[in-house]
Amino acid sequence: MRQKSRLKALRIIAAFAVFLLLSQISITLAGPDEDSCNNAPQLTAVSGDDVLELIRDHEDGPILLNIWATWCQPCREEMPELLRLNEEYQDAGLRLILVSCDFTRHSDKAAEFLGSLGVTFETYIKEQSDNEFVNQIDPDWTGALPYSVLIDTDGNVLKTWEGKLNFAEVNALLRQLD
């Protein structure tokens, strides 16, 4: 009887050891904690005037301003393409300025979304009443999201989009600037 108990105990220990080993393998295969490496930098709170100042301060190339939110489906849908454009025109000095209109208490959610797409550069979040923010950015903008503006190196507004961007149009305009 005592031998049987010992065998049973040994089996339990062996099963536990196998379990630990398999857990370790699965952790190794999955890589490090995904959340910790997918988080983009925390978003910087801005007003509409702050955004205009960011535009003024970038003198090395064109600017694509995109105002978005995690709760806006078209915004989420077009974000990967925006980031691809940003990569493609890095050498031309393009600066992509992303301003989230998520509630400031949801800033982490916006950072998580951007992080999941590999964003590591500084992005922004609106911290101002909607009415002031929209009117400071552009009184002709009704407030509907997404909203984008393409500005050339000399500061000329080439095009604005209320709703989803037309990427063929953006590409054509950026190519002209090359």
Binding site: I55, R56, E59, I137, D138, P139, I151, D154, G155, V157
Partner: peptide, 10 residues
């Protein structure tokens, strides 16, 4: 835009 700052984008 930059020269006119802080003129609004609009």
């Amino acid at each position: 835009l930059r020269k006119l700052f802080p003129t609004m984008l609009s």
